[in-house]
Design a protein around this nucleic acid. Sequence first.
DNA 1: TCATTAAATTGTT
DNA 2: AACAATTTAATGA
Length: 224
Amino acid sequence: MSAKDDLRRLAFWADALTEEEATRARKGITERHYPAGSYVCHRGDQLSSWTGVVTGLVKISAISHQGKAMTFAGIGSGGWFGEGSVLKNEKRKYDLVALRDTNLALMNRATFMWLFETSVGFNRYLVHQLNERMGQFIATIEHDRIHDPTARVARNLAWLFNPVLYPNVGKRMEITQEELALLAGLSRQIANKALQTLEEAGLIQVDRGGITATDLGALASYDG
DNA sequence: TCATTAAATTGTT
DNA sequence: AACAATTTAATGA
């Protein structure tokens, strides 16, 4: 098996690399397991690895200076994040929590920087991802003051279903209502009601242990 | 393959 | 937070 095939198991962007690049990338990555509920890193930690979710679900959240907890994004399998902190070699500005049993791929900084300076395909992927996430952040800021729980759930779902950031995700995502509540910062009961509302509105279909998006655009722009 | 049991998830109060 | 109902997973006959 080639290094690229091996790398593809951990990272979908393996296809953008040459054999040589993939070989080096693979060597710079280690896999690590995080039990459900455990912290991957706290704000202020010096986690100098670019991080990919192989399996599981991770929440990125921060506390605003006003003391309010805020979720930036949920990352499902296939998602990679933290390039900002790695590039600038600075401390994390947010908390990372594994919402369920999770396997992460950690790429050390040296390897990341080498790819960044060497690989055209890698940079193409990075720019693509940064651009997409920029759009997501802007949408987040616009809806920062939304308190309607249904809208918050809709937004979090729209993130999770983002096809650019998480190409592995199809129309259906495996996530329990409890995990979604954790993501949106709501109680499970409220999240349950919100999901029922969204289902009645025809945006999603809820089944046991998973949610199917039927109208992604409407989900992303849902404002109550 | 089927039945029983345990565990997880959901809907409701 | 606690409860009952329902679904899935695991086990063993």
